[in-house]
């Protein structure tokens, strides 16, 4: 996995190359600061109070008291995290299972009009949630799902199945057929082939899909804002805006809440970077 070296003209030592190199490195570092500093500032502000946040924005906190973090956690964030977890996990499981199931059908089984089915499911990729908003409000209300966990779980699943199916299907297309053909010869049913052979083989892409789904569901705002109303059903992104409204002026608590809500996803990203990147690489077709 060697990458093209942009700054090493075939072994020659060149003054310009050194200058260019230094310049590029400086650029990378500056950009890195621009990217990371606001986030660090956010986390640090959780340790300050209002007058420090606005009076001396660049200073380190006077002390490292967790009080604001504790207060944020106890005054809502805990509930929001719980709701976000429930919705993310439930919709993640539904999405990945249904998508794997569908992808299997689209790659391994025989059915009439398959291209149409493929087009139908994957075509959903092109439709934006915003456009469906008003009809969905009426639909979920008439189904009695408004302001329930189910509203978000179903919507997140329905809107993510096309994309996830697309990823898993692409992966399945690449899997060698010998294994499942051999199993079929031995009398295994389609169901057995799916659960025992294909699904385990798809583990890497499944993990990528799970991670991408977590990224989506944990951060989703539009549906969560429209389809839930009670404080006990607010997900983190919606809860954050309401913390902002409720705490009026205690900004340190707001910063603490923001940090708490951003942290898990950043940790997951660093822990599972490989899968993250694979998922993104596959998903660029979206």
């Amino acid at each position: 996995m060697s990458a093209p070296s942009a700054s090493h003209p075939a072994g020659q030592v060149n003054v310009w190359a050194v200058v260019a190199r230094t310049f590029l490195l400086a650029l990378l570092v500056c950009l890195g600061i621009v990217v990371l500093y606001p986030l660090i500032w956010m986390a640090l502000n959780g340790f300050k109070d209002n007058s420090q946040i606005f009076g001396d924005p660049f200073a380190l906190p006077a002390g490292w008291s967790w009080a604001n973090y504790v207060q944020a956690w106890n005054q809502g964030v805990r509930n929001y995290v719980t709701v976000s977890l429930i919705v993310t996990v439930a919709s993640g499981i539904c999405t990945v299972l249904i998508s794997a199931w569908t992808a299997f059908g689209l790659t391994r089984s025989r059915m009439p009009m398959k291209p149409i089915v493929v087009g139908f499911v994957l075509g959903g990729l092109m439709l934006s949630p915003t456009v469906a908003l008003i009809p969905l409000v009426k639909m979920l209300q008439s189904m009695g799902l408004y302001n329930t966990y189910w509203a978000l779980i179903i919507l997140y699943t329905a809107f993510r199945v096309p994309f996830t199916t697309f990823l898993i299907r692409a992966y399945m297309l690449d899997l060698p057929r010998d294994l499942d053909e051999a199993a079929t010869m031995d009398g295994a049913s389609e169901g057995q082939v799916f659960w025992r052979i294909i699904l385990p083989l798809c583990r890497p892409i499944i993990i990528s899909c799970v991670i991408l789904h977590v990224l989506f569901a944990w951060n989703e705002y539009l549906f969560a804002m429209i389809f839930t109303s009670g404080a006990d059903l607010q997900t983190l992104p919606v809860g954050l805006t309401s913390i902002m409204a409720r705490h009026g002026t205690n900004y340190a608590v707001v910063f603490a809440a923001m940090t708490i809500s951003a942290l898990p996803i950043v940790v997951i990203f660093f822990a599972a970077q490989r899968y993250f990147i694979r998922g993104l690489a596959e998903g660029i077709g979206k």
Partner: peptide, 23 residues
């Protein structure tokens, strides 16, 4: 008693969503 507590700012949007969804 089940409380839905909104702020001065958010209660407008919330009320309308609740009306629109008959809830």
């Amino acid at each position: 008693i089940e409380l839905i507590q909104e702020s001065d700012d958010s209660v407008k949007g919330k009320t309308k969503t609740l009306v629109a969804s008959n809830s």
